[in-house]
């Protein structure tokens, strides 16, 4: 094995129960040679930060379709910071209005992917972000 696999935590914070998108992404990242830690539905920000620390991931992918991203994202980013995990790249996907994206980016979210984004685009963005 020449290159080390990128480790990604895929999590669904919040209360909506739609995890098909998260599973499609997990599968696509697996097929791109990444190790995906899939944590399932209804993760609290605390659970996500703790899992990211224990699993020593390079990237976190958050899937949010409930509209609660403006509440969840700041809390998750704050917990990552206090946990010494500022170097972990965080991406978001789901139903996120364009006007919210600048605020999310200002929190340090590395990228926001809306519906219809190709999995190739996401894989490329993750590889670029980890290379930095």
């Amino acid at each position: 094995m020449t290159t080390l696999p990128i480790r990604v935590l895929v999590a669904k914070p919040g209360l909506d129960g739609h995890d098909r998108g998260a599973k499609v992404i997990a599968r696509a990242l697996r097929d791109a040679g990444m190790e995906v830690i899939y944590t399932g539905l209804r993760q609290t920000p605390e659970m996500i930060a703790e899992a990211a620390l224990q699993e020593d991931v390079d990237v976190i992918g958050l899937s949010i379709l409930s509209g609660a991203h403006n509440a969840l994202a700041p809390r998750i980013m704050e917990l990552l910071k206090t946990g010494g995990l500022s170097d972990v790249k965080v991406f978001m996907g789901g139903i996120i209005p364009d006007e919210d994206i600048p605020m999310l980016r200002s929190l340090g979210i590395a990228g926001v992917f809306g519906p219809g984004t190709s999995t190739e685009t996401i894989v490329r963005a993750i590889r670029e972000a980890v290379k930095e």
Binding site: M1, P5, E35, Y38, G40, Q43, T44
Partner: peptide, 16 residues
């Protein structure tokens, strides 16, 4: 592909 889905944590959320 060398990739993997590590899904055991799904059943271990009580320990968080």
């Amino acid at each position: 592909t060398g990739g993997a889905i590590l899904g055991d944590r799904i059943r271990m959320r009580d320990l968080s």
